[in-house]
Design a protein around this nucleic acid. Sequence first.
DNA 1: TAGATTGTTAATCGATTAACAATC
DNA 2: TAGATTGTTAATCGATTAACAATC
Lengths: 211, 211
Amino acid sequence: MATNIPEKKQLSDALARRLPAYYRHVCIMLAEGKTSVTSGELAKRVGNTSAQVRQDFFTCGGVENYHPDTLKDWLSGLLGIKEEHHMVVIGAGNLGRAIISFKDFNNEGFFIDAVFDNDLRYDGMQVCGIPILNASSLEDYLAANRVDIVVITTPANVAEDILEKSIRGGVKGVWNFAPVDLRSNDKIEVHNVHLSDSLLTLSFRMNERKQ
Amino acid sequence: MATNIPEKKQLSDALARRLPAYYRHVCIMLAEGKTSVTSGELAKRVGNTSAQVRQDFFTCGGVENYHPDTLKDWLSGLLGIKEEHHMVVIGAGNLGRAIISFKDFNNEGFFIDAVFDNDLRYDGMQVCGIPILNASSLEDYLAANRVDIVVITTPANVAEDILEKSIRGGVKGVWNFAPVDLRSNDKIEVHNVHLSDSLLTLSFRMNERKQ
DNA sequence: TAGATTGTTAATCGATTAACAATC
DNA sequence: TAGATTGTTAATCGATTAACAATC
């Protein structure tokens, strides 16, 4: 089906993964008091080439100048962190708590407002000042509160169910740590983080060296 | 400098990240009692095409047949998980504990033998049955014990120091969760996992949709 | 046997690198 | 001004897809 609205194809995964690194290093340089940045300097820090930095910035529409403040502001816009993001975490286990305790997120406007767990013993307790609610109340909560991102740190078997509830609740993004490959669709953006896959990739590279 | 040993170039990152997913899904199919696998079926599960599965397997040297046992065995070899991996975790915070409590690792031969933390109050305590040792004893520990992989869950400022100690201690791999980009070198393979970068990538994709 | 699936080569597509005139 | 750096186009390189004879 042809349409005349020219589907702007989304940027490549490789680039999407480099952008946060650019942002992180620009912030560091800003904190170091640097008053100017070059594509070469930034490239060296992220482990890149200056040509790629310039090409990436060009692909993303270009930035006015290379003052660290300008760059930070421009990257913030690209990354969508000029607006606040309200999050809830599903699962109050160690990983859920680890994510809640990453206080860094707040600086970029990510707020964790609640944690859900199906273990009744947690009822009424808090993690880092954030209330633990019962998992059965998730749908009501989503209906009553603004939630942009749901973080799934549950076992695999309930992840799909939470994805569906998230979609119905109008959530726009899922950050999934359960070991299942949830798929993005037109309603929701999903980002899977498979920690054990990550360890296996490391193991693969280590093994590769031995050959 | 020309050499006649034909440097076998390492496999692409994209492929290195797909291999664990193949392995995971083959294990699932095995658990489901499937007695045969096709490139098409596997592709559907990992979100791929059958052509890519076949090309990937070809690139990795090819597998004898598509029985799930054969595939699992072959992928295990590629991923280097036929041998045991002994690990230590640096940092007994929430993330360190989350990793220790991933009991799945054991099934693939990853053993966490100790946790190190510089907080003296932890001395003598245990996490999931694993002793917490003082960070100052890391070098001695590495000298006296076999450690294949060091997991860094510390703040950024000590990560580089731990990398150096790991190299001196003969460690072959580092799985780094500190928000610094540690670099692999000829002594050690480093795999950086930047959780906050991952969240920013999700945020970027969510923002991209709004345009 | 016929239909489906694989292994492998070739074609396509996209991402990275190189180049260089324009700008700082 | 001269040297360095950028923005942008073109060239290269590598990864994905397509194709199809050989095999199951």
